[in-house]
């Protein structure tokens, strides 16, 4: 069994302990709901879920410790390897763009924020030129608008920033 374990990924140990903390938190919060006053109380399943999370997180951590350490090349640190292997620039940029998009959704409004997001992310990822990015974003946004707003009467945010 031991030799079939893969190498640790950079950041995996920290992740394992974070999962353990989450499990303990869920268990404590589950208990706090109503103090488990009866076998049918509202806290039974939340506390039980927290317990399972805690116990399995311990098993996961034990396994992580048995793994061979992550491969860190000469002249690089764990933090740098973490960034290189788990969150390359593309992932970080897209996650940041998504976050900005969501924050902008309500103030700017659906159309403006979505267009900006689509245009920028296609322009950045596809690298196929302005015109492609412009055409694809406009076309798909129009389709989304028709389906969601017109056919399904979903009231999309109209924005208040520019009113």
């Amino acid at each position: 069994m031991e030799q079939t374990l893969r190498r640790r990924q950079p950041g995996e140990t920290v992740f394992g302990y974070a999962l353990l903390l989450l499990g303990l938190f869920v268990m404590a919060e589950g208990y706090r709901i109503d103090g488990l006053y009866s076998p049918s109380s509202a806290g039974v399943f939340p506390a039980l879920a927290g317990l399972v999370m805690t116990v399995s997180a311990l098993a996961i951590i034990r396994r992580i410790h048995r793994m061979r350490p992550a491969h860190i090349p000469e002249g690089s640190g764990t933090a740098r390897e973490f960034v290189r292997r788990t969150t390359p620039a593309d992932v970080a940029v897209m996650a940041a763009l998504m976050l900005a998009y969501m924050l902008a959704l309500e103030p700017v409004g659906f159309l403006g924020a979505s267009f900006a997001f689509l245009f920028l992310s296609i322009f950045y990822l596809h690298r196929g030129g302005l015109l492609t990015a412009l055409l694809v974003s406009t076309g798909s946004l129009a389709a989304i608008w028709v389906v969601f707003r017109v056919l399904f009467t979903v009231v999309l945010p109209s924005g208040w920033l520019f009113r």
Binding site: G109, F115, F119, F123, S158, G159, W160, L161, F162, R163
Partner: peptide, 17 residues
């Protein structure tokens, strides 16, 4: 170029509003 077009799209929203 990008900014101007994006701005155009954004500007359309407050107008409608």
């Amino acid at each position: 170029m990008i900014t101007r077009r994006t701005f155009g799209a954004l500007a359309a929203v407050p107008l409608l509003g």
